[in-house]
Amino acid sequence: MNPRGHTVGLFDSGVGGLSVLKALLADMPTSRFVYLADGAHAPYGERSPQHIAERAHRITDRLREDFGIEALVVACNTATALAIEGLRAQHLGWPIIGVEPALKPAAALTRSGHVGVLATRGTVESERFARLRDRLQNEASERLHIRSQACDGLADAIERDDPPAIRQLVRHYLGALESASTDLPPMDTLVLGCTHYPFASEVLQELSGPGVTLVETGAPVARRTRTVLAGMSDTEDAAAMASPNPGVTLLSTGNPYGLAEAAEHWLGLKAKAQRLDC
């Protein structure tokens, strides 16, 4: 079932969450999406947990009050790790979908048992990430080994669309991951643990090698969002499901022109972006 008439909000520190929006547009073409890039406070991965939580609450309140969103996708791994539990406690009974490094799908895919994770420092140092990693490794006994690497600066380089810097940083962090894993079988699965990273998938695949499978989270998040909204559709009044205005509203607390350019470059989406003080 493809839910109609819903308006879904998304936010990220910048343009990385566009990778999630791309999957949502493909999975839910009749829905409306409001995407906010919190560029004035980017990058989240190097901010304090308190700052990220404060931003998440402020953005969520603003999107609900001013744009009438009926569900929220926290399209940022760092914000999910550090803020989603507080958001759900504050907005009880209201659908909030997060993104997390796709450790479970990666664990199912790996043949060697060695899964690498590239993510922001805020994600890899979070309790939420540690709980998920430890649970999966414990369930798999000694068969599964998950090694993670914090990638300071990589999301920012992707945000700037700086290919030389992206290549240099990817090479450096893959090398660090390899150096920390000499006691393990070769890594055959690499989790892209930040929504920015799929936009660097070509260089990530090239430098990690053809034998490594890249795993990202956009499609699973889109499927989960559609399922949640379809469940709401079963119980809501038909009048509330009146004809939607499908499309995308782009908002930025930073540079709206950069967001619009990124949306056109990576999604083929031609839409103006608005500046939002939030």
Rank of each mutant, 00 (worst) to 15 (best):
P3K: 04
R4C: 12
R4V: 13
G5V: 12
T7Y: 06
L10Q: 06
V15P: 00
V15D: 02
V20R: 00
A23W: 03
L24P: 00
L24R: 00
A26F: 02
M28W: 09
R32A: 08
R32H: 11
F33K: 00
V34R: 05
L36Y: 01
G39H: 02
R47W: 03
Q50D: 11
E54G: 07
E54C: 04
A56N: 10
A56L: 10
I59G: 02
T60Y: 00
D61N: 12
E70L: 06
V73S: 00
V74M: 08
G86T: 04
L87P: 03
Q90H: 15
G93Q: 04
G93L: 01
W94M: 03
W94G: 01
V99S: 01
V99I: 12
A102S: 08
A108W: 03
V115I: 14
L118E: 06
A119S: 14
T123H: 04
S126Y: 00
S126M: 00
E127A: 15
R128A: 13
A130I: 09
E142K: 11
I146Y: 03
Q149F: 04
D152C: 06
G153P: 00
D162H: 11
P163Y: 00
A165N: 09
R167T: 14
Q168A: 14
Y173F: 15
Y173K: 12
G175S: 12
L177P: 13
L177I: 15
A180R: 13
A180F: 12
D183W: 09
P185H: 12
M187R: 15
D188L: 10
V191H: 05
G193N: 03
C194K: 01
H196Q: 02
L207N: 11
V215I: 10
V221T: 06
M232Y: 07
S233P: 03
T235G: 07
E236I: 13
A239H: 14
A240L: 15
A240C: 15
N245R: 09
L250C: 07
L251I: 08
T253F: 03
G254Y: 00
A260L: 06
E261C: 10
A262K: 01
A262V: 03
L267N: 02
K272M: 13
Q274C: 09
